[in-house]
Design a protein around this nucleic acid. Structure first.
Length: 807
RNA sequence: GCCGAAGUGGUGGAAUGGCAGACGCGUCGGACUCAAAAUCCGAUGUUGGCAACAACGUGCGGGUUCAAGUCCCGCCUUCGGCACCA
């Protein structure tokens, strides 16, 4: 078989016939399969792409054969920094290089032999896409969920742009690994925090990996507690947040964040210089050292005191940079006996340590729940009960209320870069912030822009873009010169696919509500707290404004594993451990690589690349080809009486179908292929019979081809044609199994005495436990093992074993 | 520090609490061949034994169970994620 020839031949034919077209008029049994779209980088598809896309494609083919109307679109996340950086280096415009790269990837994805329906292709940098990203921005603005704020933002010193919290990795830029600092700027934010509770609560409904749900849960960071007002001697109100109000009788000090609005106001005159110096030092500290848990806790006394409303005792007020101004109220109560940080702080500054939870002899700080002590009328209550009682009392006095806080921050979306979606906002001296009217969309990203990074937005330097007229008063006005975070583009792309060619709306409500949600979403774990969270937020928002009738975009999610270099390290150009696939594909073909990737790795785990097996897959395919082409499928066969050999083959046949179906469903592709190999082996074995049922062999062979066709689509299509079957194998029904063939008349089970294997028995599986026990007891080996001991118990597990317990 | 995942032959990897190592690779043996390759058949966890067989065996130490790779407790190692969140 000339591999490259037949692969090209069938790809062409499939495309001409639109074999994999989505039938948009038949949505009752649709299946929306989606891989996270990728950034069009310049080089060829790498191993990771192949692993991800080819196997997900096999899954899609499996679903098609099960009778689903498969919607399997593809597109490109085409805005972003790499193209811009590449342009700075080479002088090639981002648009040019991106378009070229998309063309390269399109060609290669087609060469892979995928089921993509190219009629629904999208690229986020195309006007017809980003027009609707701008529409989404305006909708969010209209509903008050896109807002501007002068606030400290994460600034990457290397990329010269703002980053979202989700893009900062341990104080460094996720993309370029350079330092990220805080900078005060006016920026656009999306109010994802409005959805914190639903984003958290709905996680339970999702068929997602548990670890991903936990990652989102931790990221949202819900904390239930109470706000308590402490008043200073000058009657300034300091509101603190605590999740441990049961320890309020143990408060020995209050701490404010250095940036807290009251710090300077309450500080006494003589302490002012010290406090100011501390605030200055804290502001200079970069985010990394400030966020380090190992950093020693520092602080400074303000000279002021506050009254603990529970005890009426005076406690000193400190400021310390371990308290974050961005979380809750930016003020906390210090309970050294029951909190690690407070304990360290109290030790250092010689503050009281009052135990108010019985530690049962454990050392202080004791941070668990327990029974209250030294807490007046609450003594003896357990923490949980005391919490509500204390809140109730303080609430009645007007000092406290229940409060829930989240770690989740609003999503900052302004970027001071060129290659992104322009923000459809105009600033008018008379009218203020004016959204671009919907009918004026898209705001086109101009091409003749100097985007050398200098800390300002490149679009600010483009006069034709910057200056415009106000849509209200028609006086001269200026455009917002930032572009949107590319995660905005990708937060709704799954809605656009079914509507890729729709020029009138972002998405047609009725149609989209039928095609969505995505039934199976495949992509990397690295998006757990970024893209996957943003997309859920946007879906919920669009639902709330009446555009969608579902709550969650991705019903079921799978993370593919990572293929590592042969050294077990993550593949990267700098490590020099990347794999060039061109040779393999040329030598063995795309089918062979696809099958090898399916068989050689656990899809959900990945692992180090190892090319040893690829040749064996090629041999396996040749073995299949020899087997298939040995028979004349059109000649008449006579009736054949089954002997045990036929029964055995039929058993393997049906068992293979059953196991294969289950394995495909759970992305256990390696096991699915193993089962197919077993069937092939069984057919070869059966062939050695003198008297054989050719019809049965031919039926088995056809099943082999069908089961294998999701993995090696060209190869199977070719053989399907060669044996005279009708085009196309990919439109065949996935094989189903006959339960009755899985019932054996004799099975081998294990006979144990005291859980130790003594012998094996061939029995009829329908026998009762008592009958099996008798058979076991008749065996000499069993008799010897039992000797003259007493049988106290017999455990019979049908199809598996009998275990006799003796004493 | 916290959260999560993983640790199984020479090797990639399988195992709803029920015969560990499916299926491959590799290795060894046989058939075919003048020979080699390819192909087909078979063996292959370790140790001891000619063998039947026996003992041991899923990172380490305990436990639950008739039965543990799988469940529980305590560690070690590796890889991810989060990191002063009151």
């Amino acid at each position: 078989m000339n591999i490259s020839e037949i692969e090209k031949k069938w790809q062409k034919k499939w495309q001409e016939d639109k074999l994999y077209s989505f039938d948009k008029n038949n949505l009752d049994k649709k299946y929306y399969l989606l891989e996270m779209f990728s950034y069009p980088s310049g080089s060829n598809l790498h191993l990771g792409h192949w692993f991800n896309y080819s196997l997900s494609d096999s899954f899609g083919r499996f679903k098609r054969m099960q009778g689903y109307n498969l919607f399997h679109p593809v597109g490109f996340d085409a805005f972003g920094l790499p193209a811009e950086n590449y342009a700075l280096k080479t002088g090639i415009h981002p648009k040019t290089s991106t378009e070229k790269n998309i063309a390269i990837m399109e060609r290669q994805l087609k060469n892979m032999g995928t089921t993509y329906d190219w009629d629904y292709e999208i690229a986020t940098c195309k006007e017809n896409y980003y027009k609707w990203t701008q529409w989404l921005f305006l909708k969010l603005y209209e509903k008050g969920l896109a807002y501007q704020k002068f606030a400290p933002v994460n600034w990457c010193t290397h990329c010269n742009t703002v980053l979202a919290n989700e893009q900062v990795v341990q104080g460094f830029c996720e993309r370029c690994k350079h330092e990220v600092v805080k900078k005060n700027m006016t920026q656009w934010f999306f109010k994802i925090t409005d959805y914190a509770e639903e984003l958290l609560a709905n996680l339970d409904k999702l068929d997602w990996p548990e670890k991903t749900k936990i990652a989102q849960k931790n990221w949202i960071g819900k904390s239930e507690g109470a706000e308590v007002d402490f008043y200073t001697e000058n009657n300034e109100k300091i509101t603190i947040f605590t999740s441990r109000i049961d320890t309020i009788f143990g408060v020995s000090y209050i701490v404010l964040a250095p940036e807290h609005e009251l710090t300077l106001k309450i500080t006494t005159k003589e302490r002012l210089p010290l406090v100011q110096e501390y605030i200055y030092q804290a502001s200079k500290k970069d985010e990394i050292t400030r966020q380090s848990t190992t950093e020693e806790k520092t602080g400074v006394f303000t000279g002021a005191y506050a009254i603990n409303p529970a005890t009426n005792k005076k406690v000193p007020i400190y400021i310390a940079d371990y308290v974050l101004s961005t979380y809750a109220t930016g003020a906390v109560m210090g309970v050294p006996a029951h909190d690690e940080r407070d304990y360290a702080f109290a030790k250092k500054y010689n503050l009281d340590i009052l135990q108010v939870i019985d530690s049962q002899g454990s050392a202080i700080p004791f941070c668990e729940y327990g029974k209250l002590v030294n807490s007046n009328e609450f003594d003896g209550l357990d923490s949980k009960c005391a919490k509500s009682k204390i809140i109730e009392k303080l609430q009645a006095q007007g000092f406290a209320r229940r409060k829930i806080n989240y770690k989740l921050r609003d999503w900052s979306v302004s970027r001071q870069r060129y290659w992104g979606c322009p923000i459809p906002i105009i600033y008018c001296e008379h009218c203020g912030v004016v959204p671009v009217p919907y009918e004026n969309l898209p705001i086109i990203l101009p091409e003749d822009v100097d985007f050398t990074p200098d800390g300002t937005s490149p679009l600010a330097k483009h006069n034709g873009y910057l200056t415009t007229t106000c849509p209200h008063c028609h006086k001269p006005a200026k455009r917002d010169v930032d572009t949107l975070d590319t995660f905005v583009c990708s937060s709704w792309y799954y809605l656009r696919y079914p509507n890729a060619k729709n020029f009138d709306v972002a998405f047609d409500k009725e149609f989209t509500n039928k095609v969505l949600p995505v039934d199976k979403y495949v992509g990397g774990m690295e998006h757990a707290t970024g893209h996957l969270l943003y997309s859920r937020f946007i879906t919920k928002f669009l639902r709330d404004i009446g555009y969608l009738n579902f709550d969650e975009p991705f019903k079921s999610l799978v993370h593919q594993g990572l293929i590592l270099g042969t050294d077990g390290q993550k593949m990267s150009k700098s490590r020099g451990n990347t794999i060039n696939l061109d040779n393999f594909i040329e030598l063995f073909g795309s089918d062979c690589l696809r099958l090898y990737l399916a068989f050689g790795f656990n899809y959900l785990e990945g692992g180090p690349w190892n090319e040893n097996g690829i040749k064996s897959i090629s041999k396996f395919l040749e073995r299949v080809e020899r087997l298939i082409l040995k028979y004349d499928y059109k000649s008449k066969r006579t009736v054949f009486e089954n002997t045990s050999a036929e029964n055995e083959l039929e058993y393997v046949l049906n068992n293979t179908i059953k196991e294969c179906t289950d394995n495909m469903e759970s992305f256990a592709f390696n096991s699915a292929v193993a089962r197919i190999m077993e069937l092939v082996n069984a057919i070869y074995k059966y062939e050695l019979q003198e008297n054989k049922n050719l019809y049965l062999i031919e039926e088995c062979n056809k099943v082999v081809l069908k089961l294998l066709s999701p993995f090696t689509p060209h190869f199977c299509e070719e053989l399907w044609q060669n044996i005279g079957e009708n085009y196309s194998i990919h439109n065949q029904q996935y094989p189903t199994y006959d339960k009755t063939k899985l019932v054996k008349s004799q099975i081998e089970i294990v006979a144990q005495v005291n859980s130790k294997i003594i012998t094996r028995l061939n029995i009829n599986p329908n026998l009762t436990a008592e009958q099996v026990k008798e058979i076991a007891l008749a065996q000499d080996k069993i008799k010897n093992a039992i000797a003259n001991k007493q049988i106290v118990k017999a455990i019979y597990i049908p199809n598996s074993l009998i275990n006799l317990i003796i004493k």
